[in-house]
């Protein structure tokens, strides 16, 4: 899962990126509206955390322009808390609204909910035969036995599971699992998928040659 955080308070931006990465997300950052809009338009994010009071383009302008081309879920994170502001944020195309100061755990929960809804999978638990994924605790079990996964392995599994039934190209998968800081080769994906298959000990993930990966319904 790859996120974009647009926030002009650099300390908060740094900290949010760190906390979200520790949660297992791939995180890109932008410190002003222009940069944020550019990144949001040019990458396929699973969700965007957007501040309203930004130098240059403000959050509302960023969202208005973004909505012309993309329907990426957007969570407003702002100190503006009047009802009018919330309504403006939501009616302007925002998907959720969180007022500063906030609790990290709530931000995480809202982001998880946003990503689930965007993938049209309302339940936080995904059961794929023997394999069960709990997106809240980010744990995976096979036949009741917990399986320890690395962050990247978990991300790949969760992304494929959210989009099960669809073939996910390697490029798409790479984009959603690695952030802008990553300079790894994309064949690292194959290594992660190989390890994942080994740990799950089943042929849940199917390789469509020349197309990508898929978890069948």
């Amino acid at each position: 899962m790859r996120l974009l955080v647009i926030e002009d308070e650099v300390r908060l931006l740094r900290n949010l990126a760190k906390a979200l990465r520790e949660e297992g997300y791939a995180v890109d950052t932008a410190a002003d509206g222009e940069e944020g809009l550019y990144k949001a338009q040019n990458s396929d994010y699973d969700a965007i955390v957007l501040d309203v009071m930004l130098p240059g383009l403000d959050g509302w302008q960023v969202l208005a322009r973004l909505r012309k081309t993309r329907k990426t879920p957007v969570l407003f994170l702002t100190a503006r808390d009047t009802t009018a502001d919330r309504i403006r944020g939501l009616d302007g195309g925002g998907d959720d609204y969180l007022v500063k100061p906030f609790d990290l755990s709530e931000l995480f929960a809202r982001l998880r909910a946003l990503i689930r809804r965007a993938a049209d999978r309302p339940s936080p638990e995904i059961a794929l035969g023997e394999v069960k994924i709990d997106t809240r605790a980010r744990t995976v079990s096979v036949g009741g036995q917990p399986v320890p996964l690395t962050a990247k392995e978990y991300m790949i599994l969760e992304y494929l599971a959210h989009h099960r039934g669809k073939v996910i190209t390697r490029t798409e998968l790479y984009e959603h699992v690695f952030d802008e800081r990553a300079d790894t080769m994309s064949n690292l994906l194959d290594v992660h998928v190989y390890n994942l298959r080994k740990k799950l000990a089943c042929d849940l993930i199917v390789t469509r040659r020349g197309l990508g990966y898929c978890i069948e319904e």
Binding site: L16, K18, P101, F102, L104
Partner: peptide, 21 residues
């Protein structure tokens, strides 16, 4: 309020992140 909330958000999110592990 806005000016007070921003540093508050920094403090909350810094401390909560630090305490997670």
């Amino acid at each position: 309020a806005h000016e007070l909330r921003t540093p508050l958000a920094v403090i909350l999110s810094e401390t909560q992140t630090a305490l997670r592990r």
